[in-house]
Design a protein around this nucleic acid. Structure first.
Lengths: 250, 250
DNA sequence: GTCAGGTTTCCGGTGAGTGGAAGACTGGGC
DNA sequence: GCCCAGTCTTCCACTCACCGGAAACCTGAC
């Protein structure tokens, strides 16, 4: 935490202390992880609790408040997209029986907005609200391929985080992948995150034809693609149609 | 908006402008609805955008940022509860084919944390993140019956909002309902929100036996209760068990 | 009892936040 | 094309809300 100056920055650096692995913390932990003085932390936390942005558990620890769930539910993708897409995601899940996910782009990252996970899912990497880089996930490739040039350049210029030996590592490789995605209308991210899975993703378009989200399924390595690809693409088209996209339009 | 003084209050009064019916607003609208001077609004909004708490759509309007979805996903109920409960909620949906919901209590309100809605659902009142009073919903009655006395007193002392002619309106009536819920181990909210539906709710318990959430199904008026009640109660027990509750314990 | 850790309260100095005003953009009407 | 109403952005000097060190206050463990 590089010493935030404005009050809002401080408040958010407090909120950022909470993660999936650390969902409840004490006041002192908040102070330590955020780098803010204890008394400052105390004052801020008290206000945040008043605003219901934080919540004090009976054991004295602080948790993220339900107010933030409420607000988060209004974020783009959560509102319209989520509700309309869910039935189709369920259909896709019925067919494939593997982890189905819906994601949108936020800057140079993917954010998952909905997920249906098989009980014995092959991966548990993603959750609703979690983020991943654009270059190494199926949804990421689809979203990046449709993103403004400025975003693509930013991703191509930054170092590409490597997860496995198969993760796309060079800008050149990424450029080729994006071209392929644009040509084919879908993306396959083959063992880029874990060696035991690959994912297939397809775009979701809004009324004006822009790519607003991406659907994907994560399946175990070895699964035949010829069954998965059409299912995912169909799902993407179905959601697009539910959002008001008319395929005939230019 | 009663003129907030602290910066955080101001920031949250801006965020509060966003609702389900008003998910994207312009700067001036934010200023007007929050009661803050335009220049102040502008400065705050700019910081919030930098922090990704807000997002500027291409058309210039502001929306809630994905950062808040990310944070909201860490709120109690979203993290553990949600994931563990979903399979059972789906089972309940399979059986009943009507709107299934999972909710927790926040102060004197119910907050819905998960929902599975039938495509041709009888109601569309609730959404993930939305709030309702405790006295008139099935989940609310279950949660209130298990709440600390202070909370019960607060609800009993406040005016009870009325939705239909059947909504519980007097403290006496509410007290009796709560006693019944405690005795029976489930709640029925009969036509209290809409005259065409009633809901059946059951408690979900954490490892230490505390009621941490409630499950419910909303069914059309006229549906036989003898099939719905056992299904909902079973679902509540199943989720409780998945959370580590051992029924044998006191 | 003592001690270590965490939590709450206090208060004077000060710079981050304030908001009125003026200027820069829209886009819609004629 | 021109104008105008509404919206957005920038500027800047005042001032009050925020800052954080310090000290008191709670725990519970040993």
């Amino acid at each position: 935490m590089p010493t935030p100056k404005s009050l809002l920055e401080r408040a958010f650096s407090l909120l950022s202390v909470f993660t999936v692995d650390r969902p409840a913390v004490t006041l002192s932990e908040l102070s330590r992880h955020s780098g803010l003085p204890l008394s400052t932390t105390h004052r801020l936390v008290t206000s945040l609790v008043e605003l219901r942005a934080l919540d004090r558990a009976p054991n004295g620890r602080y948790r993220v408040g339900l107010r933030l769930l409420e607000l988060g539910a209004l974020s783009p993708g959560s509102l319209d997209l989520r509700d309309r897409a869910l039935p189709f995601l369920e259909d896709l899940y019925e067919v494939t029986r593997h982890n189905v996910q819906l994601a949108v782009r936020d800057g140079t990252e993917v954010v998952y907005v909905e997920r249906i996970s098989a009980r014995d899912a092959v991966n548990v990497v993603t959750r609703v609200g979690s983020r991943m880089p654009l270059h190494c996930t199926g949804v990421g490739l689809v979203l990046l391929a449709a993103a403004p040039v400025a975003v693509q350049d930013a991703v191509l210029a930054a170092p590409l985080k490597r997860y496995t030996a198969r993760t796309i590592a060079s800008p050149q490789e990424l450029r080729e992948s994006l071209a392929r995605v644009r040509r084919d209308g879908y993306a396959i991210s083959d063992r880029q995150i874990e060696l035991i899975t690959y994912s297939v993703a397809a775009p979701v378009r809004g009324p004006d034809g822009d790519v607003v989200a991406a659907v994907s399924v994560v399946v175990p390595t070895g699964t035949r693609t010829d069954t998965v690809v059409p299912a995912v693409r169909t799902c993407g088209l179905a959601i697009s149609r539910a959002l008001g996209w008319a395929s005939g339009a230019p």
